[in-house]
Design a protein around this nucleic acid. Structure first.
Length: 486
RNA sequence: CGGGGUGUAGCUCAGUUUGGCCAGAGCACUCGCUUUGGGAGCGAGGGGUCGCAGGUUCGAAUCCUGUCACCCCGACCA
């Protein structure tokens, strides 16, 4: 290594958390602020969110939803209308107690989620079965004063979308709940190249106030899980709390059945932790702010010729809607190679005098590090093909990683304990464990107590069905993924 | 919120034990020239109320008290 080449990113194997922090800071995705737990989403970080938003929003609209915006401030009394809800959220609420120099009559919370406010409004909007269903989504910031924060994955303020729907009956509401979960799976797998397990949360991991909670769960490169999206069937819990009733065809007054579903900026963090490597970010082409970086090489008169050629390529690529930029800064090529690799740009195109002589360019792909020599007249085609190939390859790599670190033949708590201890000793990834569960919450709690593994979800399509409960050995009612999680 | 650690230039840190010696180094930044295929070279510059607030002292980056932030490990969570 040459003098002056600083190792700026901690290797993943040495300290995964530090790798993560180093990477997102060096890649200029975020910055800390004077407010505890609140970060700036810098332009490259925010653009990742914008692309996730676009992909989600398109699908929400296609399934009949419309966007609206509700207040960020929620009266204290609203939280008391649903018992489990207040118990779930009250510890982490920030409050507004004063305005215009006077104490408010009723404190206002910065929303942690909007079931209450939206429930209140729906009760006024819904009279008849003809008013149903109500299909509304909100893009918003929410606040949850967490004890321990981590950029993107858990911050005190974060950006998200929350869908809130009201339906005439349970069947339709349950259908909505699963339909939106499926949309999450599709966006997360197709756009972010992250494979997930769809499934149902155990009662102890349910959303505060939900009848049933479903999730999509993703595995990070350190083997921990992230809940990438959730969808809830709320039954008539909020309808009762907020008096959301309608007159049905049979002339009877009934409570609506509501759902809510959300994904947040933690998807950005997940994507980084699923794909990143020791050189920094690796971004899936579909969401990468820059898909192709052009590096002109050479000086003097030759530089001019090179730059003209680069401009031609940029024009052609833009015509094909490829997001391309040229790095004309006065740095050495090697410096730029490292810089853009760190930022995760999927494809780098190097063009120098030597290439022009041979009527070719050099293409380097971020996901494999491979360098290709490509004839100039095939550049556009090759880039377009590679963007798709990289997207697919990243997904497949993540899928393989997930499979390699999913353990389906651990049957007892004793075996799980040994597995966890051995993983720590050998400094290997403990990963996820598929376990049978009898349905008793104390059995679930015991797994957490002894191993710090928590239940992630009960997958709809488990790799295999477990016969006995991992804790008590009785007949298993469910097959559950357990792991450490963010 | 408990245990541990760190706050000195944009970044990484030295200096703190034992108060006084111009507040330093490398990288980054600015200007000039030479350079350009994996983190370039030479020369000349700019930049810090030492996290913040008190206190002790003739004198504080250094000692004392408080406070804030960040990182790591645990309990709570999208």
């Amino acid at each position: 290594m040459k003098k002056g080449l600083l190792k700026e990113i901690t290797p993943q194997s040495e300290d995964f958390s530090r790798w993560y922090i180093d990477t997102i800071k060096k890649a200029d995705l975020m910055d800390y602020t004077p407010v505890r737990g609140c970060i700036v989403f810098k332009p490259d970080g925010y653009e990742l969110w914008e692309r996730i938003q676009q992909a989600m929003d398109k699908r929400f609209k296609e399934t009949g939803h419309r966007n609206a915006y509700f207040p960020m401030l929620i009266p204290e009394s609203f939280f008391e209308k649903e018992k489990e809800h207040v118990e779930g959220f009250s510890p982490e609420l920030p409050w507004v107690t004063e305005a215009a120099g006077e104490k408010l009559e009723e404190k206002l919370a910065l929303r942690p989620t909007s079931e209450t406010m939206i429930g209140h409004m729906y009760s006024q909007w819904i009279q008849s079965y003809r008013d149903l269903p109500v299909l509304i989504n909100q893009w918003a910031n929410v606040f949850r004063w967490e004890k321990r924060t981590m950029p993107f994955l858990r911050t005190s303020e974060f950006l998200w979308q929350e869908g809130h729907t009201a339906h005439a009956d349970e069947e339709e509401a349950r259908h909505e709940t699963l339909q939106m979960l499926e949309i999450y799976r599709e966006v997360i797998e197709q756009e972010l190249a992250i494979p997930v397990w769809m499934g149902q949360k155990t009662p102890s991991e349910k959303f505060a106030g939900a009848v049933d909670t479903y999730s999509v769960e993703a595995m990070m490169k350190d083997g921990k899980a992230v809940q990438a999206g959730t969808s809830h069937y709320l039954g008539d819990n909020f309808a009762k709390g907020f008096d959301i009733k309608f007159l049905d065809r049979d002339n009877k007054l009934k409570f609506v059945h509501t759902t809510s579903w959300g994904t947040s900026t933690r998807l950005i963090g997940s994507m980084i932790m699923v794909h990143g490597d020791d050189k920094g970010l690796v971004l899936p082409p579909r969401v990468a702010p820059t898909q192709v970086i052009m590096i002109p090489i050479g000086s003097g008169k030759k530089r001019e010729i090179v730059l003209n050629k680069v401009d031609d390529f940029v024009t052609d690529l833009k015509r094909e809607e490829v997001r391309v930029r040229t790095d004309v800064r006065d740095e050495t090529p090697g410096w730029k190679f490292n810089e853009w690799e760190m930022r995760g740009v999927p494809i780098r195109v190097e063009i120098g005098p030597r290439d022009l002589e041979n009527n070719q360019v050099i293409i380097a792909r971020r996901d494999t590090g491979e360098k290709l020599t490509v004839p100039i007249d095939q550049l556009i085609e090759t880039v377009k093909g590679l963007l798709n190939e990289i997207q697919t390859n990243m997904y497949n790599k993540a899928l393989q990683f997930k499979a390699a670190h999913s353990h389906v033949h651990i049957d007892t708590l004793d075996e799980l304990n040994k597995h966890v201890i051995k993983s720590e000793q050998d400094q290997v990834i403990a990963g996820w464990v598929l376990a049978g569960w009898c349905g008793d919450e104390t059995c679930e709690a015991k797994v957490k107590e002894e191993t710090s593994f928590t239940s992630r979800n009960i997958p709809f399509e488990p790799p295999l069905n477990k016969e006995t409960c991992i804790t008590c050995g009785q007949k298993a009612q469910h097959t559950v993924w357990f792991s450490r999680s963010y």
